[in-house]
Computed example of a mutant assay.
Amino acid sequence: MALQEGDSDRINIAIDGPAGAGKSTVARMVAGQLGYVYIDTGAMYRAVTLSAQRLSITAEQEQRLSDMLHSLRIDLEPGVSGQSIFVNGEDVTQLIRSREVTRQVSYFAASAVVRKVLSGMQRNMAGRKGVVMDGRDIGTHVLPDAELKIFLTASVKERALRRFKELPADQSVPLEQLEKEIAERDALDEQREISPLVRAKDAIELDSSHMTIEEVVGSIVKLSRTKLAEAK
């Protein structure tokens, strides 16, 4: 795919994969190494979920969701300790990582109303190239023309173990329960009617079960430089 005039020496990178595969961490590090902008689409869906929960709106209440979305401003701002997420000016970076949000986000992500609005936001963000975006349907739906597409995965057991290690001491959850929840979320993401989790035909699959984060990041950075050379 040839770069268009004005694109400069940058490409867009789409990283898809199931929950707990390490997409956000990897995407953030890849963006940092390449000097690109990282867009955490999962955080955007979490922000919508949190906002809906606060208003007691369910994923099935499309009109109420639509009204809420039109009054919602989501900003992603880079910081010293990572990306901060703001909703209408409020920092919700920590709040969107609660178990309540985690357990409900797949239902809101399956909403056609939510996906239409957020996909539009995400495409606008990627318009000038030089973006690393992660999610469930970036390569297949949001950025189907991304020059590099990665499908990052890992076994359910490994993904549950990673989540288990990340949990704060006051949120202790049995490892077996996390495995069950991740498997259930996989099923929801794969079976939803709107933009299900599938590997794009031209995506490169990376199984990170036995790879360090640094190894995964290094592989993607190397692939991106190859793609950039091919695109010129």
Rank of each mutant, 00 (worst) to 15 (best):
V198H: 05
R192P: 00
L148I: 10
A169S: 14
E205W: 01
L143G: 02
V142G: 01
R163S: 10
E181H: 04
E166Y: 10
A183C: 08
V173Q: 15
K157M: 10
R199S: 11
F151E: 02
R185M: 10
K180D: 10
K201W: 02
D186A: 13
E190W: 00
E193K: 14
E176C: 01
L188P: 00
K180S: 11
F164C: 09
I150C: 11
L148E: 05
R199H: 02
I182E: 00
E184H: 02
E181V: 08
F151A: 01
Q171P: 06
Q171M: 14
V198G: 02
E205N: 00
K201N: 14
V132Y: 01
E179C: 09
L197N: 07
A187C: 06
G139A: 12
L178S: 05
T153Q: 10
Q177I: 08
F164W: 13
A146L: 06
Q177V: 15
R199T: 10
K157Q: 15
I194F: 02
H141P: 00
A200T: 09
R163P: 08
D202R: 05
R199L: 13
P196G: 07
P174D: 14
G135L: 04
E205M: 11
L167K: 11
L197F: 07
L167Q: 15
V132K: 05
I150V: 15
V132R: 02
R192G: 00
G135C: 07
D186G: 05
F151C: 05
R159L: 12
S155E: 15
V132G: 00
